[in-house]
Design a binder for these strands. Structure first.
Lengths: 214, 214
DNA sequence: CGGGGTCTTGATTTCATTCAAAAATGGTGG
DNA sequence: CCACCATTTTTGAATGAAATCAAGACCCCG
């Protein structure tokens, strides 16, 4: 793993709480602060003029949200679960960028960390077939989910958000998950829980290997 | 318009030519140079394991392609038309980044310039309806196309690439364009030519205003 | 003057959305 | 602790839109 930005006051910073559904910042607002997620899962949301809601990204602990790449935030950030986060001012973030840039001689890994998932989503939802998209999505996040002592994944994402992320209907997401369950590829031991029974099958479907057996 | 990076040797640099279809760099190759497009149109291409081809972005004169945000290029860059470009070493680009970062106190506009279209594509192909996607796409590029003395746009993008960009079939793109022609919204006076007759209609359709009259 | 690629068009099939409604879940307040 | 509500998830059936298949027209190139 590449290391994240080191902020001078990082360890001393106050961890703010937010409850599920809370807005962290709004699309269009000027980028005044960067949010570093410490606990929980957040989502980036973009609403089209006609009300179509898209989830542009999911964020996990360690991610930096709302980098001042443009003048204004390009999406709204909301808490999916309860979460804890730390704020950095735009200026202190820029200073950290310069420092890290000079030391590593390369670009900041945190820029990559925010931009890469956005890029990856574009590729995922460009794929044909709901099941392919679901598996590509699963593959991209299962390594970032906490594991319970029993070996299950903590998976608190509502299907509505997954549908918004995959640009599909919630019913289709549900049917997709059912298919994966019935194929013995995943199990859902409980709400907010997910067990990967056949990881290679997920990768296989995600890469489109099996034409239309699924 | 935000200003692009100033490279010390920018104006003195040699402009390299490339012919249509030529590869500028390959997905997965280490990011060793940044390409600054001077003339023509380029595309970013990503091929899935099963051979599905997606166009991740179109690039126009002034754009920087292949920023070293990650270690390796995330897409293959190819010339759509004949083009002219200038190469910058990764190092000289990083130095320019630090300089600009310190002077402006903000992040580099060229990072935004490459990342923003990628972000925007995600939003576009997340929309439902081929015609909506086509219009959203048109709206996003028509301001970057050269204008002929007659007032037409120079539009050298093959429909196959547009289909790859919009994650749809070439036939659907063709039908979509026909519909726009028959509705008097655009005209196609010749190959590589496009006339916008009703720009507001494009914006209206792109924003999903007209439910399903189209 | 071919010939390969792109564009165009129609017919058909497939898949996902939509509509509708029931079941499950979580939270709330009595 | 339980009843109740709101939200999410699930399921089925019908509809609709786009992909696919197939074939012909067009155009640019050598």
């Amino acid at each position: 793993m590449l290391c994240q930005v080191q902020h001078a006051a990082s360890s001393r910073a106050i961890v703010m709480p937010a409850s599920a559904g809370e807005v962290l910042f709004l699309e269009g607002d000027p980028c005044e602060r960067v949010i570093e997620l410490r606990r929980g899962i957040a989502r980036g949301v973009s609403i089209s003029a006609d009300g179509e809601r898209q989830v542009t990204a999911f964020f996990f602990p360690g991610d930096q949200i709302g980098l001042p790449i443009a003048e204004a935030y390009r999406f709204t950030a909301e808490a999916v679960t309860e979460l804890g986060y730390v704020c950095h001012s735009r200026q202190s973030w820029s200073e950290a960028l310069i420092r890290s840039c000079r030391e590593q001689g390369g670009l900041l890994s945190s820029i990559c960390a925010e931009q890469d998932p956005i890029f990856r989503r574009g590729i995922i939802i460009g794929r044909h077939g709901v099941l392919v998209r679901i598996c590509a999505f699963l593959r991209s996040i299962i390594d970032r989910l906490p594991v319970t002592p029993e070996g299950d994944l903590v998976f608190p994402l509502p299907q509505i958000d997954i549908a918004g992320y995959l640009a599909t209907a919630p019913e289709s997401v549900c049917r997709g998950f059912r298919q994966l369950r019935e194929s013995g590829i995943i199990a859902v031991p409980g709400r907010d829980r997910l067990t990967i029974l056949d990881r290679s099958a997920i990768v296989r479907i995600a890469s489109g290997a099996c034409q239309r057996s699924f």
